[in-house]
Computed example of a mutant assay.
Amino acid sequence: MEARRLHHFQLPEALNATTPPERRGLRRDHVRMMVLDRKTGATAHAKFFQLDQFLKKDDLLLLNASRTVPAVLQAVRLRSGEEVEIRLAHRLDDSVWQALVVAEGVAVGERFIFSPSLTADVVKEQGSGPFVTLQFSREGAALYDEIYQLGEPVRYEYIHTDWSLDYYQTVYASVPGSVEMPSAGRAFSWEMLFRLQRKGVKIAYMQLHTGLSYLLDDSWRHDPRENHEQYMIPQETVEAVEQCKAAGGRVIAVGTTVVRSLETAVDAEGVLRAQSGWTNLYIHEGFPLRVVDGLITGFHEPEASHLDLLSAFVDPSLLYTAYQEAIDREYLWHEFGDMNLIL
């Protein structure tokens, strides 16, 4: 089933958040928040640190604990001596990654040199997609040590300053693997999370390592169904969801990555199962959400597939009206911008 696309809207360039809130004189949890009623389309407006006013005891917040890695690396191409940019895309195992090599004619058997102690060989060409597969000379924690020393975070075209990796992390991220920040959780502070827990809001974690979506070249277009991302849902999270539902609470996903993972892990009987694997689930208008009741997310650009996912929560016409209101009220877009709570 194809989704009915959200009406195209014009996003003024001034609403692209180019600067982290902390560099604009705000705490990260003091960005603005639009609250959207998924049934009626009614909106309310607050600051993100006031989230506790919209949640209730026994609600469950589900957070993506994936930590952002600095995925943009510089390497020397052994066969020519030229320096090339390599963008990590998906981790396949302890020493193998899919990657976007910003160079022509990359072939199996080529070697790239990142440092005196790190090289990578091309073991699979890109084929019909944009990525090659690289086998690194180091693995596990040793490879991550090199990546963190050598890499820079992925920065989108509207970001004009080389903000450090710290600005691309959530406070609770613990498991390295995302090449682009799971940004819906960025506005949380530990103080906020503790305050929510004191109110009786439960918190649980899962992981989805985000893949590379910013491909530099519009000739490569990612259909969501072609974007496979690695996820892991632990048993304690499944039990937290079951307890939340039994107590009459709402399961609120922090980010589209959490929605995608949870809805992937539902079996044929509609039961959430602890599991790990790869998901390419495409969620859209009319998709039967079986786990998630609400969503915390940022504001998404026109034509983004994330808007299709939001249309599973809110009728596209109501979502379009809310987005127009957000534009009129000058909410800020993207990972350094404002937040949208859908309940």
Results as ranks from 00 to 15, higher is better:
E236Y: 11
L92A: 07
A274G: 13
S183L: 00
D293E: 11
G277D: 03
D328L: 03
S219N: 11
T210N: 08
R77D: 05
A44K: 00
E263I: 06
W97M: 12
P182K: 01
S117P: 00
Y172N: 07
Y331S: 10
F48S: 01
R79P: 00
R250S: 12
L215V: 11
L11Q: 06
L341M: 10
D223T: 07
E110K: 06
L212H: 14
A65V: 07
E263H: 01
Y214K: 13
A265H: 06
Q126C: 04
N64D: 10
R138N: 10
D145F: 05
A326C: 05
L61H: 10
V84A: 03
I147F: 09
S178V: 12
Y172R: 06
P288T: 02
S183F: 01
G177N: 08
L118M: 02
L118P: 03
Q10H: 13
H284S: 10
D218L: 09
G248T: 04
F48Q: 07
L216G: 05
V76G: 00
L196F: 14
V96K: 07
S137Y: 06
E226Q: 10
G286P: 09
M181S: 13
I86Y: 04
I203C: 03
A75Q: 10
L193S: 10
T19H: 01
F131R: 11
Y323T: 05
D308P: 00
Q230S: 11
R87F: 13
E303W: 01
R250W: 01
G81R: 08
S164N: 13
H222S: 06
L78P: 00
A187D: 04
M1C: 01
G41D: 11
E229H: 10
